[in-house]
Design a protein around this nucleic acid. Structure first.
Length: 1146
RNA sequence: GCCCGGGUGGUGAAAUGGUAGACACGAGGGACUUAAAAUCCCUUGGUCCGGAAGGGCCGUGCGGGUUCGAGUCCCGCCCCGGGCACCA
């Protein structure tokens, strides 16, 4: 009876399908285990041998867990939205749904052939409306949520609206709610909120929603006609197809994954995932601690680059600025800040304010008023008198206060100062002093109505020529709405004293504003050039230094020194604030820039050789003059942040590299985004309108106006309002699909709470590591979100994950002499198509390749077709043989190196394929596929089969019928040979011998442990060892073979089922309990000790394990061979490790 | 540049600090066979001594170290694969 894999595998494939052997019920009475594979995108190319690697591993675990009594969820489905089907549709007009359907059917056939234990009743497809209904529903939940940083979780947007209605967004809220999530939005009171029109309210809410529409820089891929997420772009080109990608600013749906940055980072610690994946995610999230530093833009106080400008400034400033009190560029910012300060006055300020009002000075005072770059505590504008109340803080900033006074006086103000103490102790004295000063001040005329602001917010900037009769102030730069400070993020605030310039990214919003007229042309040329460059070009020019000076200066927050502001493309617009403080002494990039443009390089650390390079050591000592001198870097960082916070010029800040995820794609084949627009404001569709199904379109291309394909649909509206035309990206469905498997046919919910509560997290997730910063991050993000909203009871999707390595192909490359020109030989490298079996058939231009003696030869005799021959001749080959070179590379259709599992299965069977894929090496390792090695596993299965059919004899051509007569070649008689019908089985019920039991239990032990460790290659070798040993022992005993069959079943299910049935079992082997190994069968009474001398093994001696260490030592030393080795000398020392080794130190 | 992996026979690879190369492929030799397929047996890290039986020496990328003993632990390099990359 020969092992006939074709017959056996077909039989069981059909039986499993008919019996629904792998159907899984949600049965809370049983312990659960959830093993999931990353579902595939069903491409037209079908599966190659690399694809099933992970599926086989997870299938083994799933089957193993079933034997152990777990209720195992092991489903499969298709990630069926995606670009290839759509590209195919564009080329051929075939609807992507049809392409997808065909490809999925082909995948199913191939998967079935391998014998996976998937429950296909739970299949999901992301492109199925019944599935994407819930993808859309989850999107609506994201749209309906905001992230509350104080609760550190997502909450319904209604709670935020209620909060705004009750208390507005003021003070603390304004910074907490908006500060870290998006750009600062300012404050509004409850009354203001209520007064906002609908449009404004919705605009404000967009800044909070987890799914939001915003104008943003995106990765635009013109060739694909769509936007891509950051993880879909590699080295400046699209990951799929390798098309160039540009930065473009456009309206775009995004998901606020940045709100989860810290939790995504923290969550990694508890996950049993590979270090490389966790590390990749950590890098991608890119947390860095440092400080936000505000540099006041100081153009009006500082010398400009040209003498004319400098002269003008010195002449104008003191006159104009007394009246035009707010520096236009920072006005808005200061005003906001002043307003906040006014809401939270210190005790002394409040007391003085009250006293001044009561004192009836006859003058109008303003508090927390903006004057140019300063916010003064109190001011009487007509009398140009400033009153400052200094908190204890001022003890430490006497220098800054002096500077401040000096500057204010330069504008024509008189400054008088009181301490907190003075004010609180004797208000009357203070007020008297102020009155005294007022009497001495002249009164100035101001334009009529200039101060008539409703909320006394500060003096609005004057328009040119508006001043009180003095010379009109002519701004040298256009007026700007949002100009203020330049904020920079730095991880090294300790180096602040080494700042010699600031650099802005070319796309920084303040660039234009800060550019002086004489530099405008140059700056604009530079910025335009930088912006128009593709991401790829930018990366290619990374080592070139370029930049341009804006002509403006900022003010150093500690020293007050003028710091020139530059623009440079080494600063990225998308990270931090898009601006850096340049410390050439402490940062190599700044150093290069400074060197290139001859800017000052200031040493910040002791022992730095700043002529050669920046000193980036994190254990250095700061040498800058000032309060940081002598501190080590970490202490100096802390100290610098304290100082920044104290003087209000910055704060400690954690920054993340992670960006919000672009969520809209200008493509057809994806989930429609369930949003409609009224008055250009996005509104969600009601859940009852889901699924919002993909409309029919005439073409799958963008419209003539560049609108996405969905814009082609007739009547793409909801309730008369236009619907969103972009679709979701490929990763939408895969971000939550694991939940749908739990309850795949639920029409009322994405999955029932009972099902989710039963199956919970994935116990084992198997898939490729290439998804580290894409799918696996979004997957975790959505899970955390659903958890926050109380929809699922866990906040990580997968407890354990294993990444299978890549199975590489071996491509045959031929070096062909293409031509000889000028005596030089020109070779062309050709890739040849492989057709397994050692023979490599031509692709182009060589017709036939033979494989012999480990070398590859092209056989010219095989050239048949004229086309080939002529192509061949055109290379003027003068020799019939060319050496070929195998190259290991990614297995791919385009590289002619694909090995199809169908071919392998046809020849060797699925069980052999499964075993071989596992035997190839450690699961996580990448390895080239070499079909030649498969013979070994095929032989193993035949030997295993023969154990049951040849009375334990392992060879000698035993044919089925004659088996009985062979009984005499076994050690044991075969009295009770079991025969089931005509199966030819030859198995006895004789009691097993000790060595047989030892082999069995050693195997059970090793395999049980190895599956737990996901070490399948060593399990397979253990099976081979067992079969070899049992073959030598001529073992055909049921007591040994039956448990061994169960143990092999997860690896080779078809043959195991067949033998199990032959052994007389009426139910599937999948229901059999896993055989436990027993230590007693592995116990030995003696051990063969390696006896080593000075660590080198010289001989082996057998000793009973019962011997004590001392007895063993004595026995070893007494042994004649040991004595001979010692040659009369006494051993210096003897190390005895029981059951391991004896080492004699001579 | 930074961060993860990894480097062991002709090949894929094993090896809780304890006999390096299990298991398998390939190769060589042999048995069976008219032949082939299939199957089985022997050899197979390198090198040296020996007719043989045996035995010696060297060997896990390189150089150091810890240890009775290191592929395994520590330090410093080199190379390969992967991730991130002007991230301030």
């Amino acid at each position: 009876m020969q092992y006939d894999h074709k017959h056996i595998e077909k039989k069981w494939r059909e039986k499993w399908r008919a019996d629904k052997t792998y159907k899984v019920l949600n049965d809370p009475s049983k312990p659960k285990y959830y093993v999931l594979d990353m579902f595939p995108y069903p491409s037209g190319a079908g599966l190659h041998v690399g694809h099933p690697l992970g599926y086989i591993a997870s299938d083994i675990v799933a089957r193993f867990k079933r034997h152990q009594g777990f209720n195992v969820l092991h489903p499969m489905g298709y990630d069926s939205f995606g670009l290839p089907a759509e590209q195919y549709a564009i080329q051929t007009g075939q609807h992507p749904a049809k392409t997808t359907e065909e490809n999925a059917a082909r995948y199913r056939e191939q998967l079935d052939a391998i014998g996976f234990s998937f429950d296909w009743d739970r299949e999901v497809r992301t492109s199925d409306p019944a599935f994407y209904k819930w993808t859309q529903w989850i999107f609506l939940q994201l749209f309906d949520s905001w992230y509350d940083p104080r609760a550190d979780k997502a909450r319904p947007i209604a709670e935020l609206i209620a909060r705004f209605e009750a208390q507005g967004c003021m003070g603390q809220d304004a910074s907490v709610l908006t500060g870290d999530v998006e750009e600062f939005m300012g404050e509004f009171t409850a009354a203001e909120w209520q007064a906002f029109d609908e449009r404004t309210k919705q605009m404000v809410l967009q800044h909070f929603r987890l799914a939001y529409l915003s104008e943003a820089w995106v990765n635009w891929c013109p060739a694909l006609g769509t936007v891509l997420a950051n993880d879909e772009v590699k080295d400046g080109v699209s990951e799929r197809g390798g098309h160039p990608v540009e930065r473009k600013r456009m309206k775009q749906w995004s998901l606020r994954i940045t709100a989860y940055a810290q939790r995504l980072l923290d969550g990694l610690d508890g996950l049993d995932w590979s270090d490389s994946i966790k590390e990749a995610q950590r890098n991608w999230i890119g947390r860095s601690e440092g400080a936000m530093v505000r540099f006041a833009v100081n153009t009006d106080l500082t010398p400009g680059p040209s003498p004319q400008e400098r002269g003008e400034m010195q002449r104008d400033v003191p006159v104009d600025l007394r009246f035009d009190t707010a520096n236009k560029r920072i006005y808005r910012d200061l005003k906001d800040r002043a307003r906040r300060m006014r809401k939270e006055p210190t005790e002394a300020e409040a007391a003085l304010w009250k006293a001044l009002r009561n004192a009836m000075t006859g003058e109008k005072f303003r508090r927390q008023h903006v004057i140019q770059d300063f916010i003064v505590d109190f001011v009487c504008l007509p009398r140009t008198l400033v009153v400052e109340v200094d908190g204890s803080i001022h003890d430490q900033q006497a220098d800054y206060d002096r500077y401040r006074t000096q500057q204010l006086e330069a504008y024509g103000f008189k400054v008088i100062r009181f301490t907190n103490d003075e004010v609180l102790r004797d208000k009357k004295a203070v007020v008297a002093r102020i009155k005294e000063e007022l009497a001495q001040r002249p009164t100035l005329e101001w334009p009529e109505g200039h101060f008539d602001e409703p909320d006394d917010a500060g003096t609005p900037p004057l328009s040119p020529g508006e001043g009180p009769g003095v010379r009109p102030h002519t701004p040298r730069r256009p007026q700007a709405e949002a100009a203020f400070h330049i904020e920079v993020f730095t991880t090294r605030p300790d180096t602040l004293f080494g700042v010699s310039f600031l650099t802005l990214a070319p796309e920084h919003e303040l660039v234009s504003l800060l550019t002086t007229e004489d530099r405008r042309a140059e700056v604009e040329t530079y910025v335009t050039k930088a912006k128009n460059r593709s991401e790829r070009e930018r990366q290619a020019e990374v080592d070139k230094v370029s930049g341009v000076f804006t002509g403006s200066y900022a003010k150093h927050p500690f020293t007050g020194a003028d710091v020139p502001v530059w623009v440079g493309d080494y600063v990225l617009g998308g990270y931090g604030t898009g601006a850096v403080m340049a410390v050439p002494g402490g940062d190599q990039r700044d150093w290069r820039f400074a060197k290139h443009f001859g800017l000052p390089i200031i040493a910040v650390t002791e022992g730095a050789d700043i002529d050669k390079a920046a000193d980036e050591r994190k254990d250095a000592t700061i040498c800058s003059e000032g309060f940081l001198k002598g501190l080590k870097v970490p202490q100096a960082i802390t100290r610098a942040i304290e100082e920044l916070e104290r003087i209000g010029a910055g704060a400690g800040r954690v920054n993340f590299r992670l960006r919000d995820a672009a969520f809209g794609r200008q493509r057809y084949w994806g989930e429609p985004i369930p949003i409609h627009y009224q008055d250009d404001i996005p509104y969600p569709l009601p859940a009852s309108a889901l699924p919002l199904q993909l409309p029919e379109v005439d073409k799958f291309l963008p419209t003539e106006d560049g609108e996405p394909p969905l814009a082609r649909a007739k009547d793409w509206t909801y309730d008369g309002h236009p619907l969103e035309t972009t679709t979701m990206p490929g990763w939408a469905g895969s971000s939550w699909y694991f939940l749908r498997y739990m309850d795949p046919h639920n029409e009322d919910r994405f999955a029932s709470p009972e099902a989710i509560d039963y199956w919970k997290q994935i116990d084992l997730y198997v898939g490729g590591s290439e998804h580290a910063t894409g799918h696996l991050l979004y997957f975790r993000f959505w899970t955390k979100f659903l958890y926050d909203r109380g929809l699922i009871p866990f906040d990580e999707p997968a407890k354990k994950m294993v990444n299978q390595g890549m199975v590489q192909g071996i491509s045959m490359m031929a070096n062909v002499l293409a031509s000889t020109r000028n005596g030089e030989e020109h070779y062309q490298v050709l890739a040849l198509d492989n057709k397994t079996e050692g023979a490599f058939e031509r692709n182009y231009p060589v017709d036939h390749v033979m494989f012999r003696d480990g070398r590859y030869w092209i056989d010219m005799a095989g050239a048949e077709r004229t086309r080939t021959i002529s192509a061949f001749r055109s290379y003027q080959l003068d020799a019939p043989s060319i050496e070929l070179r195998p190259v290991v590379e990614k297995m791919s259709k385009s590289k002619f190196n694909v090995v199809n599992p169908d071919d392998i299965i046809a020849k060797y069977g699925a069980d052999t394929l499964r075993l071989y894929e596992m035997f190839l090496g450690p699961l996580e390792q990448s390895k080239p596929w070499d079909t030649n090695g498969i013979e070994g596993t095929y032989r193993f299965l035949r030997k295993f089969w023969n154990l049951f059919h040849q009375g334990g004899a392992s060879g000698k051509g035993g044919e089925s019928g004659e088996g009985g007569e062979k009984g005499d070649n076994g050690d044991a008689p075969v009295p009770s040979t079991l025969r089931v019908d005509n199966t030819g089985l030859l198995v006895t019920d004789a009691p097993p011998t000790k060595p047989e039991l030892k082999t069995l239990h050693a195997t059970l032990k090793k395999v049980s442990e190895d599956i737990g460790k996901m070490s399948f290659n060593t399990s397979v070798s253990q099976f081979m060892i067992a079969v070899n040993e049992l073959g030598s022992l001529k073992c055909n005993k049921r007591a040994i073979l039956e448990p061994l069959t169960i143990a092999l079943a997860p690896f080779a299910p078809h043959i195991a089922e067949e033998l199990w049935e032959k052994l007389g079992h009426g139910t599937s082997i999948t229901t059999a309990a896993w055989p436990q190994w027993e230590a007693r069968h592995l116990e030995e009474d003696s051990f063969t000790y390696p006896i080593s001398f000075n660590g080198k093994t010289r001989l082996q001696l057998d000793f009973p394990l019962a011997l004590s260490k001392e007895e063993l030592e004595a026995a070893v030393l007494a042994h004649p061979e040991v004595q001979a080795k010692l040659d009369g000398q006494a051993a210096k020392k003897v190390i005895v490790v029981p059951k391991r080794i004896v080492n004699i130190v001579a």
